[in-house]
């Protein structure tokens, strides 16, 4: 089977399975009228909408993560050509990684990996 066909077919199977579960529930459940519920607040009523601008205190870690994530884009194809390119490929990749790691050490020393 062609890769794309197989992937799309498998997606179809999975989606049909999920829809099947919803369908089965729709068919057998006691009532399709939803119960009016409140988001769980230990028994008390909510006072405002929970969706809000969440104070993400680990945003510096996300920056570091992005740097490494881009590096991964190079590293995946790199794995295939190590023997072809020879020693230079390995040296270049690991010098690059070493530079990134130096950044991590700096960020760590500055306390960017702690937020509590």
């Amino acid at each position: 089977m062609n890769g794309v066909t197989a992937a799309l077919s498998l997606l179809g199977v999975a989606v049909i399975a999920v829809l099947g579960v919803y369908g089965a529930s729709w068919a057998v459940r006691l009532s399709s009228t939803p119960v009016d519920a409140a988001p769980f607040g230990s028994g008390l009523e909510p006072v405002e909408h929970a969706v809000s601008r969440f104070h993400v205190r680990w945003y510096t870690v996300t920056m570091l993560f992005l740097a490494f994530d881009m590096e991964m884009v190079f590293m995946y194809p790199w794995t295939r050509v190590i023997s072809v390119m020879g020693t230079s490929a390995v040296i270049e990749m690991f010098v690059f990684l070493a530079i990134l790691l130096a950044g991590v050490v700096y960020a760590w020393r500055e306390g960017a990996l702690r937020w509590t």
């Binding site: 006691l30 009016d36 519920a37 230990s42 028994g43």
Partner: peptide, 15 residues
């Protein structure tokens, strides 16, 4: 605490 209990009870879906 009857009011919070009632809240929780209403939040339970049937069955």
């Amino acid at each position: 605490l009857r009011a919070p209990l009632e809240r929780l009870w209403q939040d339970l879906p049937t069955p």
